[in-house]
Amino acid sequence: MNRLWTPAWIVRHVAMVVLVAGCLGLGWWQVTRAAGGNAISFGYAIEWPVFAGFVIFVWWREVRQALRGKPADDAQQPGDPAPSAAAGPEPVDAVPAVRRPVRVVRVPAAPADGADDAELAAYNRYLSWLNANPGARPGDYPG
């Protein structure tokens, strides 16, 4: 239980109370606006308490997770190998805990009928002319 009274957890508890009070206060404000004739405020009057409930849900889930976990000094990280019964230093794994994604080079597909597109070839010539003449305007293209 002492794990829930560290400075980081005290900030979380205070943030939860402030957020829940703020959401419920905004919900009450929307109820008073709805009672004054603003019809759309009825939806917001329902929405703000739902937000407050979500804050409580996340806070409660984090509290349960902290209480179920081991103390921080002997906690095992998610990628660490299982502890062995043999005494002595553990061997270092060559496999990293997080692997990099495999990159696949994609080659553009050839046209289905095998014929070159004349408009595409002309456009590519135009783009290469613009690249070769950086100060030119598109209206200066001779082709």
Rank of each mutant, 00 (worst) to 15 (best):
P89C: 01
P89N: 05
E90I: 01
E90Y: 00
E90P: 00
P91K: 01
V92T: 14
V92G: 00
V92K: 14
A94K: 03
A94R: 13
V95E: 13
P96S: 00
P96C: 02
P96I: 00
A97R: 06
V98F: 15
V98C: 02
V98I: 15
R99W: 02
R99E: 11
R99L: 12
R99H: 09
R100F: 08
V102K: 05
V102G: 01
R103W: 07
V104K: 11
V104A: 03
R106I: 09
V107M: 10
V107I: 12
V107E: 12
V107G: 00
P108S: 04
P108E: 06
A109C: 12
A110M: 03
A110R: 11
A110K: 11
P111K: 04
P111S: 05
P111F: 01
P111L: 00
A112F: 04
A112N: 03
A112C: 10
D113H: 05
D113G: 02
G114L: 08
D116V: 02
D116N: 01
D117N: 14
D117C: 07
D117E: 02
A118W: 06
A118P: 10
L120M: 10
L120T: 10
L120N: 09
A121D: 11
A121K: 04
A121H: 01
A122L: 09
A122K: 12
A122S: 11
Y123P: 01
Y123C: 05
Y123E: 11
R125C: 03
Y126G: 07
L127W: 10
L127I: 14
